[in-house]
Amino acid sequence: MKKLGLLVAAAALALSAGTAMAQKKQLVIVVKGLDNPFFEAINQGCQKWNSENASSEYECFYTGPASTSDEAGEAQIVQDMLGKPSTVAIAISPSNAKLIAQTIKTAAPTIPVMTLDADLAKEDAALRKTYLGTDNYLMGKRIGDYMKEALPKGGKVCSIQGNPGADNILRRAQGWRDSLSGQEGLTELKGEGGWTEVAGCPVFTNDDGAKGVQAMTDILAANPDLVGFGIMGGWPLFGAPQPYRDLFKPLAEKIAANEFVIGAADTIGEEVAIAKEGLVTALVGQRPFEMGYKAPTVMIDLIGGKPVEDPVFTGLDECTKDTADTCIQK
């Protein structure tokens, strides 16, 4: 009987603890898709914040659609989260900036809304309090800088992009073109600075690594005089590392001699190993863990009415074959 009483008491304690957790105010992070290692790094930062703030009245709650290609699914999750009484602030990485902006307008939230990793379009920026993440224009510019430094005379190139409605990718592509051309605002390279985008480019892959590798295979086959790729997200390298290696190992000597240049975004998964192998000219990486770790604190500041900078940039890590062992900031 005494043992039964102890079990009942333990069950009651567990139920109480579970109820207390359920009653926590949720600082929600909605990402483009749960199938992307980049966003899992954001989740790890979110969970690290939770582990360090177990006694807080708040918890970081991470969610998103199963696939990064599910724009409508992300918008529905944002709508659902904004309608939950437990949601007291939300950080969104918009897969489709216009769609998420419309979702926010329709929901007319009374809680703080911020963007994370990807921002809304400039004309919709008033819908959120701040943006936390990468300076995407600078990231694209640095990718272009590395390519231009390696091959100053330029040549025929192609950019590999993700979702055509993703503001962060579009800003990177603009920075990339501005760097290569030496001009601002071009939507296509037609010989400016010596650089020309070939037919069929940019290629939009919806963040699918295998699709990115296949696209580069096709572009190379159709353009034997191609001199490089600007990869605006690391999906082909971290999402399909072996197919990527298989495609570019035959070009390793040209890459080493700066006769073929590849500038790519991100430094996650096997990307740094690929850089060490000399199969990319340079990587310009983001800091997704830091985004996930900082987001709850920024949301709490917004709830409390504290001043928050807009934007809040998390910095870049730049890696080449020669710096790969020390390029990631801890």
Rank of each mutant, 00 (worst) to 15 (best):
W235S: 15
Y146F: 14
G233Y: 08
G191F: 11
L220P: 14
N223Q: 03
C158I: 01
G212R: 08
G182N: 13
A150R: 04
V213Q: 05
D246S: 07
K254F: 05
E149D: 12
L151Q: 10
A222V: 08
T187E: 13
E192Y: 10
D167F: 14
P236E: 12
A210Q: 05
L151P: 13
G212M: 09
F238G: 09
Y244E: 02
S159T: 11
L151D: 09
A173V: 15
A252I: 14
G209K: 10
G191R: 12
V157T: 11
E192R: 12
Q242L: 08
D218I: 00
L251R: 05
D207T: 01
S179P: 02
G182W: 13
M216Y: 04
G165D: 07
D167G: 06
L226A: 03
Y146N: 14
M216N: 09
Q242D: 13
M147P: 07
L251C: 08
G162R: 08
K254P: 00
I160E: 07
M232E: 14
L226K: 06
P152S: 02
G162C: 11
L237W: 01
P236T: 06
Q183C: 05
A252Q: 14
K148T: 06
G162T: 14
T217M: 05
A150H: 06
G191K: 12
T187Y: 06
A240G: 09
N163M: 11
G230V: 08
I231T: 02
P164D: 05
A221Y: 06
A210H: 11
D207F: 08
G209L: 05
C158A: 12
G230F: 10
A252W: 07
L170W: 15
G239H: 04
K156M: 12
D207W: 09
N168D: 14
G194M: 08
G193C: 07
Y146R: 11
D208W: 13
D208F: 10
D218H: 04
G233I: 09
Q161W: 06
I143T: 00
G154Y: 09
A166L: 04
R172G: 01
L247F: 09
K254T: 04
E188L: 14
A210L: 15
I231L: 03
E184C: 08
A221H: 03
A222G: 04
A150W: 00
F248V: 01
S181H: 00
G185V: 07
A240W: 10
I219S: 07
Q183M: 09
Q174K: 04
G200K: 00
F204G: 00
Y244S: 00
P236I: 01
G209R: 12
E149N: 13
A252S: 15
I219E: 03
P243G: 07
